[in-house]
């Protein structure tokens, strides 16, 4: 059979990345809490309704839109807030249905529970 010279449509497997705007990368702590992965991110100035957490093709995307400032910082200007954006590649171990998140004092905590069979199993050693 003759090979087709037409280009085959390739499925784009990439997850959407950020739009071409200025964004900030929030600092994070990520640790393994045994039955879950925990991602803690500093997102100052962000309201709960302006946070977008998305998991697609094992990529965790954090997007957040800070609200506007109170006054024009004419006397001292040390920071400016832009939308926050960060992505993480997750392993197969995360149970995506059970992900939950909470926002407290500008800190977002995302709990990513592990799939039950990926949790460490304790094997008892019998001493005969």
């Amino acid at each position: 059979m003759k090979n087709s010279t037409l280009p085959t449509k390739q499925e784009n497997n990439a997850v959407a990345t950020r739009e071409n705007t200025r964004t900030l990368t929030p600092p994070v702590d990520i640790f393994d809490a045994g039955d879950a992965l925990v991602v803690v991110a500093d997102l100052p100035g962000v309201d709960q309704e302006h946070i977008d957490i998305n998991i697609e093709k094992n990529v965790l995307t954090l997007k957040a839109e800070p609200s506007t400032r109170v006054s024009e910082p004419r006397l001292l200007n040390e920071f400016a807030l832009y939308p926050f954006y960060r992505q993480f590649q997750l392993g197969e171990m995360v149970d995506q249905e059970k992900v939950r998140a909470e926002l407290r004092y500008g800190v977002l905590t995302v709990y990513l529970p592990k799939v039950a069979e990926k949790q460490p199993k304790k094997i008892e050693v019998k001493v005969g």
Binding site: R69, S71, P73, Y105, G106
Partner: peptide
């Protein structure tokens, strides 16, 4: 960040958590 209007001085401190 420090700003002002005619009545107040506003100090915004970036300190999450």
């Amino acid at each position: 960040n420090v700003g002002e209007d005619k009545d107040n001085v506003y100090v915004e401190v970036l300190a999450p958590g």
